[in-house]
Design a protein around this nucleic acid. Structure first.
Lengths: 195, 195
DNA sequence: AGCGGAATAGTACGTATCGTATGGTACATT
DNA sequence: AATGTACCATACGATACGTACTATTCCGCT
């Protein structure tokens, strides 16, 4: 076996196929959007281009519907399961990438006006409050009627395991930006009083 | 003026040039590494390729040393300052990208053993504890002797404005993974007792 | 003076990522 | 049959990214 260079996207696809069974790229896309896509954007074209790549490595199989839309259905192979297991048994040491344009703007806010800084902080606060509310709503959606549907296991794992980190992150962000708003507001009012 | 498509990297370069004055790509690299690079990795080749691109747009100027290493020194133009101001006055609405391989592994941890999950959680906890300690140390480095050096303003803004969010994030991550370790540890011990 | 290693500084190149634009298919409604 | 809309898929070009590699300068040592 050659030295396979698998990316996070590769393991995302392998993991979803392992949990949900044979899936089309569109299925994968739906699962991702409802879960990890909340804070880790995988462009949907990736979910179309990655499975064929994995098929070439023998980690998944590809079957094509013979009629209608002739969708491509991918399924994980024993080799794929093995690669996934190896990855899961070797905890990643890579640090979190936290890419936030709002934070980048704050980093340079000294180059702009006090008003701009306040405006930025208010906007970011609103964004994070909205996200926090959305996560709380998602958290509340436990065990809806209708029984276990397709993709249900994945959504359950999202809610049970991963969403809590999202909640903590958004909570921290709300606290942080609340502070920034308070400081920027005070500075702005001081300037106004002097001027 | 054409419709310029500027990325986060573009504004990072413009902002650093605005604050620190004329700089070589290497200078930019040093400033980034000491600050934002802590959680937002800009590959160093970007800091070499982006400035020429901005020069082509007229947002920065390029001067080349005539001897020795013939380093390229870039400086922001009035047009560049203007573009930067426009960006700072228009708060970004883009959500945070939180890309964490450890979290991805946890999302699929149901496909692996309890031991693997515990191992993963312990590793992540250690990583985030280390990062939190490093941030606290950085926070403590306020106002070292030697007066304002090159790049000092940028480092001060990092410490004063942006680092606090890093501290909050790492604090949240430590709490989160502590929980995961506790749950995974309990599950593992239960299995051991039964088996 | 000359050597050698560390730190500094820059480039080349192949692959992955990403977003936009666009094009088909199924199906419900009228 | 015509229209609209959700579903599904791919092409393509621009960046982004990481690794590997090269070159220059500095500095301590002999």
């Amino acid at each position: 076996m050659s030295i396979e260079r698998l990316s996070s996207t590769s393991y995302l696809v392998l993991g979803l196929l392992a949990r949900e069974g044979p899936s089309t790229p569109y299925d994968l896309e739906q699962h991702v959007q409802a879960t990890l896509g909340n804070f880790w954007s995988f462009p949907h074209t990736l979910l179309y281009s990655e499975p064929p790549r994995l098929a070439a490595l023998g980690l998944v199989t590809e079957r094509r519907e013979t009629e209608g839309r002739r969708r491509r259905v991918f399924a994980i192979t024993p080799e794929g399961m093995s690669a996934l297991s190896v990855w899961l048994d070797r905890p990643s040491g890579a640090p979190t990438e936290l890419r936030d344009p709002g934070l980048l703007q704050l980093f340079f806010a000294d180059l702009a006006s006090d008003e701009a800084r306040l405006h930025l902080a208010e906007r970011q606060l609103a964004i994070h409050e909205a996200k926090l509310a959305a996560y709380r709503e998602d958290e509340r959606q436990e065990r809806r009627p209708g029984g276990p549907q397709r993709g249900q296991r994945t959504v359950e794992h999202w809610r049970g395991e991963t969403l809590p980190m999202g909640l903590r992150y958004e909570g921290a962000a709300v606290d942080f930006w609340t502070d920034v708003v308070a400081k920027a507001g005070a500075a702005t009012r001081k300037k106004a009083a002097e001027g």
